[in-house]
Design a protein around this nucleic acid. Structure first.
Length: 436
RNA sequence: UGCCCCGUAGUUCAGUGGUAGAAUAAUUGACUGUUAAUCAAGAGGUCGUAGGUUCGAACCCUACCGGGGCAGCCA
C-alpha cells in the first residue's frame, strides 16, 4: 500500500482496519524484546494494545530504535493491523516504521507496585495508567448519561454560582475568600439556587464543583467534589424518589452498555451491576431503620444520625440501593418540608448504595411556607437578611417542590468498585493535598 | 480534630543495639510470541528532620515534619 493512502487512526478503531496499513500516534507503556522480536505495549489515549516488531521485517535501525524505546516516549508508528487472539485487546499492529516524537527518561511510574502517596504526588502522570484511565472513562460516561437523562426528561441545566455570600447548610465549614470588600465563600451546594431555577424553569439541574473545608480524612470524603443537583417544581417527594431511582438505574445501565472494557480493566462484574438497574428500589423509614439496627444489636437510639457502620449494615440487608425515608428534623437542614402529621421528622430520603458504599443521594421535599422557613433560618442561627432572596421564592407563588443531590465521586466509587473516592476524580483535593 | 500505623536504593519492602539488604526499575549483554517475560553483569544509600541515651543507633527515648487507616462531619 502506498504511503499517501496511509490513514491515521486511533487504537480504539483498530478493529475496523484489519489487514490495512495505518499510522497511529502512541506512547510506550511497556516493552519486552528478544533478539529478533520486540513487543511494544502501546497506548494512544483511546485504548491500549501492542505492537510487534519483527527483526526480519524491518530495517536494522528501526529494530534498534524499537529495542531502545523507553517507557512513555511518544512516537508515530506505522504498520498493519492484525487480528490476533494472543493479544489481550484482540488486535495488534505489525510494525513497519517508528518515528520518535518525544523522548522519555526515567519515567517514575513503573509497571510494578507503588504506594498511594507516591501515586498521588504523580497524579498528572498516573492518569496515563490503565486503571485511572478506565475509572475516568466511566466518569465521563456518567456525566454524558446525566445530561442525556435530564435533557430527555425535560430538565433545564441552570448553573449555580461557585462564589456565594451565604452558607446553605450553615453548620459545615466553608472555604472563605474575599469578594472585593465583602466576605465570600466557595459553594458547598447549589441547591438553593436550583430552587430559584425550578420556579422559573419547572425542572432544572446543576452539575458543578462543591467545596467543604471539613477536616475529613476518610475514603468517602474529598475537599472538592462534584454534585448533580436536580430540583423539580410541582413535585412531591414520592415522584422525586421515582426520578432518583430511574436516574441511578439509567446511569448504571449506560456504564454497562458503554464501558465494558473499562469495567473489565477494573475487574468490576457487569452482572452484579445489572442488579442495580432494576427499579423500584426498596424504601424503609428512618424509624424502621433504627428498629433494624437495634435488633442487630447496634448501639443507636432514635434521633441519632447513621455512621458508616450503620449505613453499611442497612445497605447490606438489600440487593439494590435502598432509600431511608424521613429522618428526624433535628439532624437535617432547615429547608426540608416538615412531616404533615409528625413534628419530629421531615420529608426526605437518603439513598444508600449496596456493598458498603453508603450514601450516594440526599434529597427532600422542600419547605414551602414562608413563616415556617423564616423561623427555621433563625433557629439554625443564620441571618435572615442573607436569605431574603430565598424567602422570596415562598413569597411569590410558592409551590410544592422537591430535589436531591447526587455525589458524583461517591456514585463512581460504587459503580467502579473502587475503595476510595480519590480515585474517581482527575485531581483529588484531599486534606493537606493540593498538588498537583 | 481524636485514636492507631508507617517514613530505609528511583519504586515496593526486609532489617528491633555491632560492616546497609532483597526484589524490581534504570544501564549493558543473550534470547522469534512476550503479556509482572526469562537469564547474566555491573551500578545504585545524608536509613524523614533535630536533639538525647549508649563504647556503638536504621533500631531505644523526645519533639517536629510528611503520609496512610479508622472515627466524627457529610455527598
Amino acid at each position: 500500500m502506498e504511503e499517501f493512502s496511509l490513514e491515521t487512526i486511533s487504537i480504539i478503531d483498530a478493529p475496523n482496519f484489519v489487514n490495512q496499513k495505518v499510522k497511529i500516534g502512541v506512547w510506550l507503556t511497556d516493552k519486552r524484546s528478544s533478539g529478533k522480536i520486540a513487543f511494544l505495549q502501546l497506548r494512544d489515549g483511546t485504548a491500549f494494545f501492542q505492537g510487534v516488531v519483527l527483526k526480519n521485517a524491518v530495517d536494522e535501525s528501526t529494530f534498534d530504535v524499537a529495542k531502545h524505546l523507553r517507557q512513555e516516549s511518544s512516537f508515530w508508528i506505522t504498520g498493519e493491523i492484525h487480528e490476533d487472539t494472543r493479544s489481550k485487546f484482540g488486535y495488534e499492529i505489525q510494525v513497519a516504521s517508528i518515528e520518535v516524537i518525544g523522548e522519555s527518561e526515567e519515567y517514575p511510574i513503573t509497571p510494578k507496585d507503588h504506594g498511594i502517596d507516591f501515586l498521588l504526588d504523580h497524579r498528572h502522570l498516573w492518569l496515563r495508567s490503565s486503571r485511572p484511565h478506565a475509572i475516568l472513562t466511566i466518569r465521563n460516561e456518567v456525566i454524558r448519561a446525566t445530561y442525556e437523562f435530564f435533557n430527555r426528561e425535560g430538565f433545564t441545566k441552570i448553573d449555580a454560582p461557585i462564589l456565594t455570600g451565604n452558607a446553605p447548610e450553615g453548620t459545615t465549614d466553608l472555604f472563605h475568600t474575599e469578594y472585593f470588600d465583602h466576605d465570600a465563600y466557595l459553594s458547598q451546594s447549589g441547591q438553593l439556587y436550583e430552587e430559584a431555577g425550578a420556579m422559573a424553569f419547572d425542572k432544572v439541574f446543576s452539575f458543578g464543583p462543591t467545596f467543604r473545608a471539613e477536616k475529613s480524612k476518610t475514603r468517602r470524603h474529598l475537599i472538592e467534589f462534584w454534585m448533580i443537583e436536580p430540583e423539580m417544581a410541582f413535585m412531591h417527594q414520592e415522584d422525586s424518589l421515582a426520578v432518583q431511582e430511574q436516574y441511578v438505574a439509567f446511569l448504571v445501565q449506560n456504564v454497562i452498555d458503554h464501558c465494558a472494557s473499562s469495567l473489565a480493566t477494573l475487574d468490576r462484574d457487569p452482572e452484579l451491576l445489572r442488579k442495580y438497574t432494576k427499579t423500584p428500589y426498596p424504601r424503609i423509614s428512618y424509624d424502621q431503620a433504627i428498629d433494624m439496627l437495634q435488633k442487630a444489636g447496634m448501639d443507636v437510639k432514635w434521633g441519632d444520625d447513621f455512621g458508616s457502620p450503620e449505613e453499611t449494615y442497612l445497605a447490606d440487608q438489600f440487593e439494590q440501593p435502598v432509600f431511608i425515608l424521613n429522618y428526624p428534623k433535628a439532624i437535617k437542614p432547615f429547608y426540608m418540608k416538615p412531616h404533615p402529621t409528625r413534628e419530629d421528622i421531615v420529608i426526605c430520603a437518603d439513598l444508600l448504595a449496596p456493598e458498603g458504599y453508603g450514601e450516594i443521594i440526599g434529597g427532600s421535599e422542600r419547605a414551602t411556607d414562608y413563616n415556617y422557613l423564616l423561623e427555621q433560618i433563625k433557629l439554625a442561627g443564620l441571618d435572615p437578611k442573607d436569605y431574603e432572596w430565598y424567602l422570596d421564592l415562598r413569597r411569590y407563588g410558592s409551590v410544592p417542590h422537591s430535589g436531591f443531590g447526587l455525589g458524583l465521586e461517591r456514585f463512581l466509587t460504587w459503580v467502579t468498585g473502587e475503595d476510595h473516592v480519590r480515585e474517581t476524580i482527575p485531581f483529588p483535593r484531599l486534606l493537606n493535598r493540593i498538588y498537583p
